[in-house]
Amino acid sequence: MIDTVSLDPNRHVPGVRRPGFGDTVHAEWVKFWSVRSTFWSIAMLFVLGAGLTVLVCATSAEWLASSDADESPAAFVTWGMMFAQITAVALGTLIVTTEYGTGMIRATLAASPRRGSVLAAKAVVLTGTLLVAGTVTAFAGYLGGNWFLDREGIGIALSEDGVLRAMVGSGLYLAGLGLFAMAVGLLIRHTAAALSIVLALVFVVGNMAFLLPGSWGEYIAKLLPGNAGGGIATPVSFNPQLLGPWTGFAVFAAETAALLIAAYVVFRRRDA
């Protein structure tokens, strides 16, 4: 068997440049795509986001076309994205918590000691992926779902108000949500805990907050991350109380940025 080793310490590799941020991003990209959970999450994102949209449009088209419909058909063409959010949260959480769970964070920081670069590289890989996956999924759901709506004569053209914005908005919102979850993951460092916190905040607290009394209660509800950011991902919202799509997204982006800064400050000082 292997008994001897041959390494030449004087061997120089010609033309090697000093690694930069691009290499850190590339490394994170390789890391991201070399585990199964990434493929599964993206597949689930598509199945839930596009599949459920098509399904709900197919089953509701007739009712929506009838006179007793009290919802706008436009609210249905991105319906599945509500559920696709879960996968974005999962991807964002896992991109940091698996490293802490396995202890691999030490290998990462030994290879790239500039922690800000590591965090930024993870953000680039995550948002790039979610932006594309979210937009493509929203389009697929719209095209499939709208086919059923068209059959009932209530189809919505891409040129109609907010439709195109909702497609790109789906990508933006999922990317933002991924970053939000990543920041929480970096602060908590524990997969199950971080996942539960973000999912509870977006799905449970977000909906319950509308039960708060008074106008301040309404404001808190509107400002919660899922409620503020989600509006951009649908042409017409089911919930009339939300902030406007871009205003809401700006609020959500500010919240995410604040959380990321907090996570970065902690990450920079903490022992790996």
Partner: peptide, 8 residues
């Protein structure tokens, strides 16, 4: 691979 890539 990812380690190699990170340090060129």
């Amino acid at each position: 691979r990812w380690l190699a890539v990170s340090n060129r």
